[in-house]
Simulated assay, not measured.
Amino acid sequence: MTILLLAGTAEARVIAEGLQGSGITAIASLSGATQRARPLPLPTRIGGFGGREGFVAYLNEAGITAVLDATHPFADRITARTAQVCAEMGLPYLYHLRAPWLPDPGDDWREIAREEDAAALIPSGKTVFLGTGRQTLDRFVNLEGRRVICRQIDPPTAPFPFEGGEFLIGRPPFSVAHERDLFAALRIDWIVVKNAGGAASRTKLTAAQELGIPVLMIRRPATPAGVAITDSVQSAVDWARAR
């Protein structure tokens, strides 16, 4: 038995520790999108699989008997492909999906369906903090006319894709105090985030509430129909143990 753990989230790291501590034979996989990622306590492969055919080939070659998907809630293409391939191959599949953020009293959140919808709500001349990462940055091109600050973990390898934008380099986790001081210093008017969930990255939302900054919350993509889902790290480890 060999479990494939599709990792890349804070919860995936805890799951990896649980698998390793339980003596479960498992391999972790990272996409390689983040440079100098912290090592996991499991044998780890880094990089894509080469599409659907490459993924199927890897599952067969590595003798994978079950797949535990703990990727980011917005990695919907990876999740959809993985769920479909596992169903076709008869491999047990579990999707660990952390609970979404819900607003607290005092939060000023507006939900949007797509990155492109942000421009309709943010007036020209405002300063915008993007906590959405670099991979979907080009979808905000219609925010020209605002000062746009995009935070990412690694230094940029290309210029900002539109005028008025700038990169801010930072490696999480960030405390509430750090985020509050940062937003105040940058004079942020609006914050745009994906509804990724998770306690570690909610600090920016707490800071936004304390400063009275409105937040545009990008709605999560739909999850594949008919797949087993858990939001519990312990349940994910127990599932793997039962395999």
Score class of each variant (00 low, 15 high):
R187W: 01
P103M: 03
W190V: 05
F183P: 06
A119V: 04
E111F: 09
A118W: 00
G133Q: 10
K126W: 02
K126R: 15
Y93E: 05
T157C: 02
E144V: 15
W101Q: 06
I122Q: 05
L91F: 07
A118N: 07
P103A: 12
R171D: 11
A158P: 02
Q135R: 11
I112D: 06
R110V: 12
Q152W: 02
I169C: 08
L143W: 03
R147E: 11
E116A: 14
P161S: 10
W101D: 04
L182N: 05
L186R: 15
Y95R: 15
L130V: 09
E116R: 13
H178A: 14
R146S: 03
P123F: 12
A158M: 12
V176H: 04
L182S: 07
R147V: 04
Y93W: 04
E111S: 06
K126L: 06
F183A: 09
I153C: 03
D104N: 03
S124R: 14
E111C: 12
E116C: 01
W190S: 09
E115F: 13
F167N: 01
G164D: 10
I122G: 09
L97M: 15
G145S: 02
F167R: 03
A99N: 12
E166S: 15
A177Q: 15
A118P: 10
F183K: 07
G106K: 01
H96S: 06
S124K: 08
L121A: 04
R139F: 03
Q135M: 03
S175N: 11
P159M: 03
K126Q: 13
A177L: 12
T132K: 01
P92T: 13
D189L: 07
V141I: 07
W101Y: 04
T132Q: 02
T132E: 01
D181Q: 15
D154H: 06
G165H: 08
L121N: 00
A118M: 03
F160L: 05
L102C: 06
T157I: 11
E163I: 08
Q152I: 12
P100T: 04
G133V: 11
R139W: 02
E115M: 11
A120V: 04
D138Y: 00
D117S: 02
P123W: 10
R98S: 06
A113T: 11
E115P: 13
L97V: 14
G165V: 08
P156R: 11
E116H: 02
G125H: 01
G164E: 07
E163C: 04
I112F: 08
E166I: 04
L91I: 07
R147H: 07
A184K: 14
P105W: 11
F174N: 04
E166L: 13
W190F: 15
L137D: 05
L94Q: 09
G90A: 11
P155H: 07
H178L: 13
P105G: 05
R110I: 13
E166K: 12
G165A: 06
P155A: 13
A158K: 09
P105Q: 05
I153S: 08
G90Y: 07
I191S: 12
A158C: 01
G133K: 09
G90R: 10
R139S: 01
L143V: 09
G133R: 08
R187E: 15
L143Q: 03
E111P: 00
G106R: 06
V141Q: 11
I191P: 00
G131N: 02
N142G: 05
G165E: 08
V148H: 00
G164V: 06
P100Q: 02
T136N: 12
R171W: 03
R147L: 12
V193G: 02
G125C: 00
D189K: 10
C150T: 04
E111D: 13
